[in-house]
Design a protein around this nucleic acid. Structure first.
Lengths: 348, 348
DNA sequence: ATAACCAAAGTGATCGTTAACATCACTCGG
DNA sequence: CCGAGTGATGTTAACGATCACTTTGGTTAT
């Protein structure tokens, strides 16, 4: 019925069931110290009134927090989007609520500004720290309320093991694998179109994808070309990649993510360079569209949803250490070979 | 400072400033009935303690709600993602918080289950009602708490004007425009690969994209082919579109969204049909990747972020009618002609 | 001079819930 | 038959804020 009548409170239930409000609370929270008959009476009253506990009051009264705030800068990328989905699913299955707050790099955020996004001080928070605004937010929260924070981002296995507040995949290793694959195909060297966070050191983080790439080249005794820095958007990538496309000696490009790879593919096509004949392109993340481009993109699959779930579990552990600390156990990154990679055309 | 000390409350501020907690409340809420000197003392104390009002306590005490819950089934599509961003921006600028809850069609949701997602009864809610789970949630909430709900989805101008809780774009009109464009290019008729909500009537909603398409064909006196139903994923679309690709008499396909269009493009390529020579393909939504596929997709641009903003404004009006009712005033859908559309090859 | 008025600040109730403690009726061992 | 222990409830006090009153002085009108 569409009546905007006020929601029933624990007192209404208590009155109807003929018990004290505290007894209702016990029933709702599954305390064992309630007689079966009383419990039934209460449950009946709850059903009749359609009573649902008020989350706000519950946490106000010192109960569990049961709410996570996710801070993210760019939810249009597949990675953050999938991780958010993972967090939400994990959270919902435990009846936590998820708040989201988008960090707009356009706003000039003071540090206080970032903290102010949390609905309450000390609010449990997960940060998508794969880009500059995210890294910055991570740092701010790390200084302010470290115990209630978890960051998701690209880190090496050692970093992940050392930091009790990090969750992520080993991007360096994945990049190494992709680079290795291209070298094995016979490419002299591999060039790299890098996402912003990979070009420098942000918030103390290292350039993991770029690092794995250059390390592999070095280990193979190859020349390590300068990484080409790109922005996050298709347009920026398209512009940034032009020199690599124009340079006929470039036979393989490892791209920092699939958006950059698609822009590279487009640029190659417009410049008349055949893919993978003239040029091999490998992306990163296995964004859904990659399987349906023409040619279909070779890329590295990442199980972001698992990472999101892992982040949530870790957060629960950190907020309340009676919860088990999850071991980082999502699937390893996996190279998916499709149609944009192949051996270089032999120079005859 | 990494001290996990408890957050300051209004009482702590009051004690430090040497006033009552109510006076602090007045300062915080900008009441004019406070002496300048007192206000300064309080502000100083606030700054010193780093005090931030507790949202939970605030809304518990009967203050404004200042929180929206967004219900969405699929946040991986560009439309919902962009709309969510619009909502979040609008909400944050007014200091509201945004909760998100993903409707997983895999879970069998009872109606009560949907209501239970709201953190409190009567919680202001925005529903992304462009797909089946969304439509269903819309219906459930419409029956339960209509006054605190707004739905975003595809509706005709008349529907939008008639329903005080609807926000959306005129998909039918946009589809008509795209169809008209293809006919004007010289195509005999236009086929339609339809998103799930367009194939039937869901929750009382009509099949707007399909409807605009068929109406235009009818008005032009053309044969109206059966619309081909597809699922939301690339894989489903790829499979569903095969008969259209195989049929050489098909020269133009209007796709229900850009994902379907990309899958169609891929299928056409694999079948050796040239685009746009043999086949014109038009998508829907102007998802960012569409400008960078090869060939680049012709599509219909939609300003989802504005729609999201509009939904939030409308919600504010409905929750508290002293807020102005926003007029639906986002930009009209706009056809973006790129490379997948052209005149049919003349049959000589 | 006194009532009336007003701005500024304080007091106490309230929101819905949980935590801590108090109470009460039994049962049981000695 | 008494005191201790226990299981099932009730009572009271937070939690952090707002709201509706009340109090306190100082002006102003009569």
């Amino acid at each position: 019925m569409a009546q905007p009548k006020k929601a029933a409170s624990i007192w209404d239930v208590a009155r109807l069931a003929g018990v004290s409000h505290q007894t209702v609370s016990r029933v709702v929270n599954g305390s064992p110290r309630v007689a079966a008959a009383t419990r039934d009476k209460v449950l009946e009253a709850i059903a009749e009134l359609g009573y649902r506990p008020n989350r706000l009051a519950r946490s106000l009264a010192g109960g569990a927090i049961e709410s996570v705030t996710v801070l993210a800068a760019d939810t249009s990328l597949y990675g953050p989007e999938a991780a958010l989905r993972g967090i939400e699913k994990a959270a919902r299955s435990l009846d936590w609520s998820v708040q989201i707050s988008v960090l707009d790099p356009a706003d000039t955020h003071s540090d206080a500004d970032i903290v102010a996004r949390l609905p309450r001080a000390g609010e449990p928070t997960i940060i998508m720290a794969h880009d500059e605004p995210g890294m910055r937010a991570k740092q701010v929260l790390l200084d302010t309320q470290p115990q209630a924070m978890v960051a998701i981002g690209p880190y090496t296995a050692e970093e992940l093991a050392a930091s009790p507040w990090l969750v992520g995949m080993d991007d360096g290793k994945a990049a190494a694998e992709a680079t290795r694959y291209l070298l094995d195909l016979g490419h002299e060297t591999v060039h790299h179109l890098a996402i912003p966070t990979s070009t420098g050191t942000f918030g103390g983080g290292k350039a993991h994808r770029a690092e794995g790439w250059s390390r592999t080249l070095r280990e193979a005794g190859r020349e390590v070309p300068e990484a080409v820095p790109s922005g996050w958007t298709f347009a920026e990538a398209f512009k940034a990649v032009q020199p690599l496309i124009a340079d006929r000696s470039v036979t393989a490009i490892l791209c920092g993510n699939d958006h950059l790879a698609l822009a590279t593919l487009r640029a190659a096509h417009l410049a008349g360079r055949e893919v993978p004949g003239d040029l091999s392109i490998v992306g990163f993340d296995n964004t859904p569209f990659t399987a349906y481009t023409t040619p279909a993109l070779t890329t590295v699959n990442q199980d972001f949803e698992s990472v999101g779930r892992g982040a949530f579990e870790l957060l629960r552990h950190r907020v309340d250490s009676t919860n088990p600390r999850p071991k980082p156990s999502w699937p390893e990154p996996e190279l998916i070979v499709r149609e944009t990679s192949g051996p270089p055309r032999s120079r005859s």
